[in-house]
Structures are given as structure tokens and as C-alpha cells.
Write a protein that binds this DNA or RNA. Structure first.
Lengths: 224, 224
DNA sequence: TGCCGATTGTCAGCTACTGACATAATCTGC
DNA sequence: GCAGATTATGTCAGTAGCTGACAATCGGCA
């Protein structure tokens, strides 16, 4: 949902004040995400059991699985929010920008927006990215999620340009290339840290920009 | 290893005739891959248990896990061979081609070579691709494998061009973009079948070519 | 207050996967 | 051919992820 502080009213929230039941549910969910996140980070993903996470929040294992379909989903929940926020940023980009420009601007914007006051902040997202790179199971799940998101991105691009995503190959293709650039950037960031690397979002943004700048050169010519 | 019929002698095979033990191992492995493949295809991935596969080959479940680290690995074994073959094709491409040309040529070449007399043939690979697209777990595992292979591809490209893969971003970037084009192509192929679609490798090759041709247009300009 | 629906806990069970140990098959040097 | 070292395999027991079914409990609402 990517709640922005400037837009409290949402079409899907008829009542401003949610019932006690809803609030409680939200709280347990957040607690589960937090517990999972810190446990995974401190002892590793594989060495952390669902029972541990559930015990930390004082709920049963069964309840955990009512909130998350599986262990992966709990781990990647933080990034899921960030991705939704990116989609929203992309939707809001001015129509004057061409697709590639819009995506570059949206990814920068979303990292910065995440940094200021979003859920958990950039901190959690960056920690998670590093955990993902070093955990094969998580990496697989993350890549699948990412790939699914590319479909959404392609649809947004097609809408922006007034094209039919079913027949025109370009939206899906560009979304996939964009995803590839991001993945390589994340990898490069994870294999750092570089001496001049910013701990906040700016470090990641710089690396992503550098990769985008190399995209053209990588595709054309002889590299020499 | 991608055994080609014209090159029986291999540097890693000191003796022409492998021992009985080795041959037996190879036979059970092949049998397991075949059994897994046909069971997954006929009843679906999730509804097939390891016990079933092991029973079909008349070995214990424990033996299955001595050949494959997990269920995914057995399912994707067919594609693993194909990927190794692609890498080999890429290595053999003439140095005159630039990186993108070499990869386009290598992927076409490997699909055709797979078609003529390779293990299992194109048939199995194409069936598997469709199963993958409709099985979330398998898709995740496949994407992870694919991503890992991109590292190998990047290294091959760097070697070809005499670059250092650790510092130059282009090899990894191009490998990732190439992977993205392939993934979208596979997806498009799976969401077919189109009326004019060839059942053999040529149908897939045509789709991949079409996507490559759209890569430039997708990246530049305003799409209108 | 009292009813209704939603959330949760408990329990039983399945399946993927692993370590430990015993058995049986192959290979090696004689 | 034959002992003895290797190595593949089977059996067994156990852990962890995940699910369905049912009962208890809690929040919403008249």
C-alpha cells in the first residue's frame, strides 16, 4: 500500500479509525515481520525456525502461516512494500518522460522516499538485500517476486504510452531489462562495501546510476 | 558436459571405457531424471513425491538425494545440460563478432545443436520450460540457476574481450540483459502456442530473434 | 447482554530433507 | 581368483516446513 504521509485518505478505507480487530492484526503482522527480520539477520535464514519466530511474537506456528504463505514471504515482506512504492512512483511520473527516463527517475525517487520516513526505512531493505544474496533459497524467491513485478511494470508502461501490452513486446522487454540492471546493481552493492559507499540510499542510487550509464555502451559496439 | 558426437575423447576421461561402477551410476542418474521428468509432466510437480520417483527407478529415497540436492535439481537437470552447451557454443564464437552478436549467434546455434542429436533433445527442454512457467517453486529455482549462469556468461565475455570482469560493469550487465531477453522470450513462447509456431527449435529461435530485434526500440525514444 | 463472524490454538499428518550406521557391491594389488 | 580398501546403497530415526480440521475465544454489533 505504500502509505505516504501526505495522503492519509485512501479510497479503500471507508472509516478513518480501523476497528480494534484490524489494528491488532496489523500489529501482529508487523511484529512477525520484525521478529523474522532480526532473527534471520542475527542467526541466518536457514538456522531460524518458524517456531522461533512465532515464539518471539508469542503466537502459534499455525498463526504464522495464516499471515504468510511460507518462510520466504515473511523475509521478503519489507521489500514487497518498497516495490509497491516504486510502482506508485512510476505511475506518477510526468508523461513527457520516455519510458526509460521515467523508470530511472522513479527508482531514485522511491529509494529517497523510502529513506525519509517509510516503513522500517532503507536500513531494513539494504540489510535484507545482503541477506538475500547470501541465501540461495531467499534469492530464488526474491527473483521470482521480482520477475512477477516486471509484469506489473510492463503494464504501467503500456498504459503510460497507450499501448497494448499483449501484442507489443517493448513494455515487457524494457521492464525485464530494467529488472536486470537493478539486479546487477544490487549484486555490485552487496559485493562492496566500497570505500566511498554511502550507507543510506545515496550509495545505492549512485551504483544504479552508474550501471544505467553503462547500459548503452554494453549493448553496442566492440568494447575496445 | 554437452557430449558432441564428433568429439568422443575428453581430457577428463583418462580411460575410454568407464568402469562398471561409473556406468551404473550414470544409468541410475539418467533413469531418475527421466522418471522425474515424465512424472512431473503427467501429474504436475507438486503432486509428485520423491518416493514416487525413487520407486519408479527402484531405488530408495535416500539414494535420490545422493544424486540431487533437492527436488528442483532433478526437474531442471535437462535444462542444465542445455545451458552448459550454450556456454560452449559461446566460447567457440569467432572473435570478430562483438559480444551481442556472439550471444545471439550462440543461442540460435545451441537450440539447433540441441535439436539434432543432443540428450533428450529439444522436446524435453520445451516441455520443461512450460512446466516451469506454471510452477512457482520451479520458476524460482530456475531463475536462480539462470542468474548464476549469467555470472559464467559474463566471465566468458570478459575473457573474449580481454577485460577484467571485476571492474568493468559491461560484461555482467550485458549477460543480465541477455538473460532478460531470453526469459521474456520463454514467457512469450509459453503463453502461445501461436498458429504459425514451429514445434521444434525453430519456433523458439524465431521468437527470441523477434525479441532481440525489439531490444533497441524498447530502450530508446518515445515508442510513438 | 447476547448473538455472529473472525482469529487463534491445538492436534494430527504429510512431505522434503539429513545424519548415522550397516550392508552389499565394485575396484585394487597380489 | 582372493583379501582388503572404496564406494554406492538401504534402513532408520529425526527435524522442519506446511496444511486441514475442529474447538475455543475474542471483537463487532444490535
Amino acid at each position: 500500500m505504500a502509505p505516504t504521509p501526505t495522503a492519509p485518505a485512501n479510497a479503500e478505507t471507508p472509516c478513518r479509525v480501523l476497528g480494534l480487530r484490524e489494528r491488532k492484526k496489523q500489529r501482529t503482522r508487523d511484529a512477525l515481520v520484525d521478529a523474522a527480520h532480526s532473527l534471520f539477520l542475527s542467526q541466518g535464514y536457514a538456522r531460524t525456525t518458524i517456531d522461533e519466530i512465532a515464539a518471539a511474537v508469542d503466537v502459534s506456528q499455525r498463526t504464522f502461516f495464516r499471515y504468510f504463505a511460507n518462510k520466504d514471504e515473511a523475509a521478503l515482506a519489507v521489500l514487497a512494500d518498497a516495490e509497491d512504492y516504486f510502482i506508485e512512483c512510476l505511475r506518477r511520473r510526468p508523461a513527457a518522460e520516455n519510458p526509460l527516463q521515467a523508470m530511472r527517475a522513479a527508482i531514485t525517487e522511491s529509494w529517497r522516499g523510502l529513506g525519509s520516513e517509510h516503513t522500517g526505512g532503507v536500513r531494513a531493505a539494504l540489510e535484507l538485500l545482503q541477506l538475500i544474496e547470501s541465501t540461495p533459497t531467499l534469492l530464488a524467491a526474491h527473483l521470482r517476486r521480482t520477475t512477477e513485478q516486471e509484469g506489473v511494470v510492463a503494464q504501467v508502461l503500456a498504459d503510460r504510452e497507450g499501448l497494448d501490452a499483449a501484442t507489443d513486446l517493448r513494455p515487457r522487454l524494457l521492464a525485464a531489462v530494467f529488472g536486470a540492471v537493478l539486479r546487477v546493481s544490487h549484486l555490485a552493492w552487496g559485493s562492496g562495501p566500497f570505500p566511498d559507499q554511502d550507507a543510506g540510499p545515496e550509495g545505492m542510487i549512485a551504483i544504479i546510476e552508474r550501471h544505467f550509464d553503462q547500459l548503452g555502451p554494453a549493448l553496442v559496439g566492440d568494447w575496445r
